[in-house]
């Protein structure tokens, strides 16, 4: 019963949060001390995307950047992680790979901004994507290193003895077996970029607008309605991805338990 109460409490909290954001995004006024605002304008969303606020463009830009970071980091991380996993000093390498996460994202942004300025990447989407890639790549290598265990090595060896060449081993054995972990990595690295604010701020220099910078701008200027809208837009893709991915995660966990 306690389990159900806990899950109910979490669900209640989640619904409260979504409800508050949804209400804020469709109301023009929420005067004190009204508990639930009554002046709701559902057409505000349509106006928003049609208007000069450019929220539509910001959303597309954010999706594009996060997808690029995710695909690049996962692909590069998968290939690189094998070398790291097999390295005789892999413990030391893992320590070093954790460094970008240990130092604050502000420190990372502040320290990199000079170089990006010199390379004419500051203030550009490419610059922000590259900066986010550093974090995402490190994360991908750490996460995917766990894939290269003796069992996978045995599977590769088996495929070779059955006649597979190197390409076939990758395409027919390694990639399919790694698929659940790769999906997880894609999701996690997507979120690293999607949620990023500090690197976008420092490397983007205020000229690259993403949902996070837009949210902060609207909040800072007192436009809670637009801030809440950006917040809902920020939540939507990851919630959908987690809903899809959670089934994958459960299936993977279940398969491993039954093995």
């Amino acid at each position: 019963m306690m389990r159900r109460a806990l899950s109910a409490a979490l669900l209640g909290l989640g619904l409260l949060c979504l409800g508050v954001l949804a209400l804020l995004s469709v109301t023009r006024r929420w005067p004190w001390p009204v508990l639930v605002p009554t002046e709701l304008h559902a057409d505000q969303w349509r106006e928003l995307f049609a208007s000069e606020s450019g929220v539509g463009g910001v959303v597309l830009r954010s999706i594009g950047m996060a997808s690029s970071v995710a695909i690049l980091a996962t692909a590069a991380g998968f290939v690189s992680s094998r070398g790291v996993a097999r390295h005789p000093r892999r413990e030391g390498l893992f320590l070093v790979l954790h460094l970008p996460f240990a130092v604050s994202p502000v420190v990372l942004g502040v320290s990199l901004s000079y170089f990006f300025l010199r390379l004419n990447l500051a203030g550009h989407i490419v610059g922000v994507v590259l900066a986010q890639f550093i974090l995402a790549y490190a994360y991908a290598v750490i996460l995917l290193s766990g894939f290269w265990n003796p069992q996978v090595q045995a599977l590769s060896g088996l495929a070779v003895t059955l006649g597979a060449d190197r390409t076939q081993v990758w395409l027919r054995v390694l990639l399919p077996v790694a698929r659940p972990l790769l999906m997880l990595c894609l999701l996690q690295t997507f979120l690293i970029s999607w949620f990023d604010y500090a690197l976008t701020l420092f490397i983007g220099g205020g000229r690259v607008s993403t949902l996070t910078t837009a949210l902060y701008q609207y909040f800072g200027s007192g436009d809670v309605r637009l801030a809440a809208t950006c917040a809902l837009l920020l939540l939507a893709p990851p919630l959908a991805a987690i809903a899809l991915h959670q089934r994958l995660l459960s299936a993977t966990v279940a398969a491993r338990l039954e093995a």
Partner: peptide, 16 residues
Amino acid sequence: ALHGLWYAPLAVPPLV
């Protein structure tokens, strides 16, 4: 595995 509900908070960024 753990109920899907517990994964939902992963979707919330610090700003939100």
